[in-house]
Design a binder for these strands. Structure first.
Length: 121
DNA sequence: GCAATGACGCTCT
DNA sequence: CAGAGCGCCATTG
């Protein structure tokens, strides 16, 4: 370790604990990783992320609730598919309902959605 | 050691 | 509500 853990490694550690079916914003991950206010680093860290880590990077999205448009073609579409397979729904604009899927940031939570937000459908 | 690269967030228009 | 601009830092060659 360069020192102990690079900032990227801490970010990965946070991403790794995002529950399935939930999503976290870059800013949220940054804060949990001890890099409050540095959401950018989170995205960059994930870009440097080797596939071998098998991190649920797909669960990290931007504050708008949409998958960040990256340079790599097809990658964004794949991310969306992966999320949908986990039960994350996208609206017509391609956005996730953060009210419903945003990770609370705590360790784990029940299944959430105990109130059934009107028409889940 | 310097310069380039890179998955965002917030505010204002 | 949508789009544009500005700020910020770590990693890598």
């Amino acid at each position: 370790m360069t020192r102990l853990m690079t900032a990227y490694e801490r970010i990965w550690a946070v991403v790794e604990r995002i529950p399935r079916g939930k999503v976290a914003t870059y800013g949220q991950v940054a804060r949990l990783a001890g890099l409050a206010g540095h959401a950018r680093q989170v995205g960059y860290a994930l870009f440097s992320l080797p596939d071998a880590f098998r991190l649920p990077w797909q669960r990290v999205i931007n504050s708008k609730g949409e998958v960040s448009p990256r340079s790599r073609p097809g990658a964004d579409a794949r991310q969306r598919v992966l999320l949908e397979r986990e039960g994350v729904r996208f609206d017509a604009r391609g956005r996730v309902n953060l009210e419903r899927h945003l990770w609370n940031g705590k360790r784990q939570q029940e299944s959430g959605v105990r109130k059934a937000p009107a028409r889940l459908r």
